[in-house]
Design a protein around this nucleic acid. Sequence first.
DNA 1: CATCGTTGGTGAATCGATTCATTACTGATT
DNA 2: AATCAGTAATGAATCGATTCACCAACGATG
Lengths: 357, 357
Amino acid sequence: MGQQPRTSAAKGASGADQVARVAGIKDVARQAGVSVGTVSNVINRPEAVLPETRSRVLAAIEELGYVRSESARQLRAGRSRIMALLVLDMGNPFFVDVARGAERAAREAGLGVMVCNSGQSPAEEAEYLGLFAEQRVCGVLVTPADATGRNLEAFSRHHIPFVLVDRVASSPGHCAVSVDDVRGGSLAVGHLLTAGHRSVAYVSGTGDLHQIRDRREGALSALDRAGLGPEALVEIPSDRLDVAAGRDAGARLLGLVPRPTAVFCANDLLALGVLQSLYAAGVRVPQDIAIVGYDDIEFAAAAAVPLTSVRQPAVVMGRMAAELLLQEADDEDGTHEHRSVVLQPELVVRASSTTPH
Amino acid sequence: MGQQPRTSAAKGASGADQVARVAGIKDVARQAGVSVGTVSNVINRPEAVLPETRSRVLAAIEELGYVRSESARQLRAGRSRIMALLVLDMGNPFFVDVARGAERAAREAGLGVMVCNSGQSPAEEAEYLGLFAEQRVCGVLVTPADATGRNLEAFSRHHIPFVLVDRVASSPGHCAVSVDDVRGGSLAVGHLLTAGHRSVAYVSGTGDLHQIRDRREGALSALDRAGLGPEALVEIPSDRLDVAAGRDAGARLLGLVPRPTAVFCANDLLALGVLQSLYAAGVRVPQDIAIVGYDDIEFAAAAAVPLTSVRQPAVVMGRMAAELLLQEADDEDGTHEHRSVVLQPELVVRASSTTPH
DNA sequence: CATCGTTGGTGAATCGATTCATTACTGATT
DNA sequence: AATCAGTAATGAATCGATTCACCAACGATG
């Protein structure tokens, strides 16, 4: 086994008989002395083949190191056994959890998952969607990067099912799984108001994202309930949603006059960045400024000051989205009903927003 | 455009003429009044077609919404235009960075990347490798989950190139990109010894991973240089390498007598978990126990006590690995020389290991 | 005018697995 | 003995893009 001349096998057709590139189903059939149809049956419907024949075929498969070609299956089937997941940013542990949930559900169904980052760029998103169409993926889970929905509208002509993740359905042509972001924003800001704050900064994204807008709306509604007008929400926009952007936002927050006594961040990465900035400037959290984040990623609890955050059921969301997609993809007779599932967020209070004693 | 009866097109063959499932190259050829070969040329060698013909074909493509099928291309080409990346844990930001680097390099070459988690399980790893073989991916970047190398040995019979990531080459049959973990461990523990510690705990993984063993070896060599024996390193093994495992390890650390005054963690996730445990138990860091982590993930700096850590050039590693793989995959004439690249880590000192004043 | 080269285009063969109508055979039933 | 049912296996057609040997048309050249 270890002594065979591997090098010669690895090179091109320089040797005796063709070097048998990669064994195909025909090679197996020849080796086992059966037809290709039988080999296919052994692989896909073993019970339809006599045990004796079956084992002969399996032996041939083993001997030749045969691995069936997915491309050929796909070509015949018209679509691949891969599900695509397009998220905004894999650097955000929230999306890693979504991916985990989706992957688990997909694996149970025998599918692979191709995870991609749009990086919040509609152009990147469009490019990836094009790639998915070429790949004839069996479906796409997507957290849309552009609010216009133009990319997805264009994509829908390919008749590949897709499910929106972390976003409510914008049209009746697909399923969606989301978390009630309005409620999440309301929980976060309501909590701050209860703690006595009367002016809250909102560190947000560009506003292209529904999540961001909804959280803002929830924040405003909480203010409204407390008898405060929208001017009590001081917006600090930020083009990206990562820790570095949070640091920038923190610096800008420090420059505001009057300085808000509380800040609500559109996600935990921003919150961690803001926290770093405040910390570096000697501003105490929560005494001087209280912080509430969003997503409750694992690192929120480990922060310099453990972060109060709005927890989202990320893994569940990924799993549900994948399951909805599978339902739709398996639907032969057009009985599939598009569904829009909305999950509920939960406030997790930690030190960053609770005045000590 | 918005008025066409989309529903009828979406359903099965209930209407007039076959519903034209998905337009193929033949449909385009017919529509444009040319042969399939010409359509193929328009797509792949546009300069070889008269501008007039070309635009007619492009118009047909546009009109039919034609998207070429990757499966068919792959079948013909023998391999896909997708590179696989199999990491230990996408929940670890370190691997997210590796993925980022790899993805960037792959995209530049027009390839897609399929990112998968082995979760440190050799069985999962084997399953994924099997999937990759079926997919006929053009290559695999892998951080091996089993130290025996059995999975990869089995995989090598498929003649699909692979590059080891974060691991030195174990055999001459492939490229590898790694970081000098011995040196990293040595830097970390050397730093602790310089700060006056004489007994260091090492929170490690199961020992199946080379990274873990090498970091340990580096730690021992640092002890040796300081005239201390291996008994000065108190090992706290842990089956996984995430924050939860770190919390467990922290609890065990607290139970040790005599209690080490410093702890070196095999990665930052463990370190963050340990930190949480110590913090919860009222043990001060670094006054009572100093902590050094590994990887210098973004969240290390944001921790309750900012973590001293050993930084690895993760993005660079991912990119280099992908580039090596592409070189090997594009290599027709067997001139490819397998290379093993070793990158250098760097110690980043923060509050978790420096005695105040 | 015949020959050659070039350019633009053709269409059949190919990749490998699946599917399905067909055949070969074995027992059982009438 | 003839018919039928059922099982096991066959092999040709199919999916869609690529490739390549070949062809037609045209201008240039001897």
